[in-house]
Design a protein around this nucleic acid. Structure first.
Lengths: 189, 189
DNA sequence: GAAACTTCTTGAACTGGTTCAAGAAATGGA
DNA sequence: TCCATTTCTTGAACCAGTTCAAGAAGTTTC
């Protein structure tokens, strides 16, 4: 819980009353590895803050293969905005990659918090800006780097995270096959 | 000018005083086709709202090929948030795809507007959420569709827009070569 | 209206990565 | 500790898309 308050305070100043209010409203839960918080096709009703662990957004293609679009580690939020904001069936599932501790913020609860503490509009704007920026950069790398380069770039940028996710999942995030990733790691390409 | 006010009012209510204030602060400019508003490597200092026409964010790869990451048509904002928010050199250039009418909002001016009309925090949060959602969906399509499918999907979704952009630019947005797009259109694949 | 420039088309050779199948290695549960 | 399940590895055949070069078609400028 204090991780989120702390995170918020990096971007907006909160007084004691506001902090107490937030602590009274927000609930942290343990989520077991592989638990789905959102299922593709359902309407997404919440945003999720990762206190500890990792979540991911993924979908299953028509061919039946899994593609991971996004990971969220500590201090990141994750949701399907298209579904949450428009109340339409989600294009993604959201799942725990490892045992995690997560704060679930329903759409109604967020509206309530923003009504009560309007300066959190700024917090959430800054949060989504950061996510959007990361997403744009990801598209740049998808366009400009080969599969090998994407893996190398990821390994250099996030060496510790590399150990935390199954290789098939990382491959699906990098948009390469699991077999190809194996060959990259074995130095066979 | 009234397009932007109109657009804002779809998401937040503005009284006459606020509208007059905004009209006094915002300036609309005509931008000639091919004009760059931001150059890769420079620090991005503004957000851009498209009243009429079209802008795009693109970059040049190490191989010298252009890749278009994002288009912004009427009623969309475009910027490089990574650069604007962190004051770091931009990963993208932003350019007019056709003669356009654009409102430029500097970082300072945005801060001033948000200070004076805090409810615009909500407007910008909703705007960025929409952009981020579009970007996530784009990643989904990049992962799950072949080049042919991406073109067909785009042609079905935005038939009029198709006529407004050069084919080589569309190809670079769909992450296929211009020659391949020609062959798709000729029914040769 | 002509010349210069830009955009689009086409065929063929090439290639980066996929797919498949089989089995090894690692992990989890009883 | 053993068995079941999941994850990873490997080689070879295959393919979606790229690249190159040449030229056609369209647009812009003078």
């Amino acid at each position: 819980m204090k991780e989120l308050i702390s995170h918020m305070q990096k971007m907006v100043s909160l007084d004691l009353e506001e902090i107490n209010y937030l602590e009274g409203e927000l609930v942290s839960r343990d989520i077991k590895r592989k638990t789905c918080l959102v299922t593709e096709g359902q309407i997404c009703q919440s945003l999720y803050f990762v206190e500890k662990g990792c979540l991911r957004a993924f979908f299953i293609s028509e061919k039946g293969t899994e593609h991971t679009c996004q990971f969220a580690i500590e201090n990141w939020w994750i949701t399907d905005h298209m579904s949450l904001d428009n109340q339409r069936p989600s294009h993604f599932s959201i799942q725990a990659v490892e045992n995690s501790k997560v704060i679930t913020l329903t759409r109604e609860k967020q509206a309530q918090l923003l009504n009560r503490i309007p300066k959190l509009e700024r917090y959430f704007r800054l949060i989504v800006q950061r996510s959007f920026a990361a997403s744009q950069l990801r598209i740049k790398y998808l366009f400009s780097q080969s599969g090998v380069e994407r893996y190398q770039h990821f390994a250099e940028s996030f060496p510790e995270f590399l150990q935390r996710v199954p290789q098939y999942m990382l491959a699906s995030y990098l948009n390469i096959s699991a077999e190809f990733l194996s060959k990259i790691r074995a130095g066979k390409v």
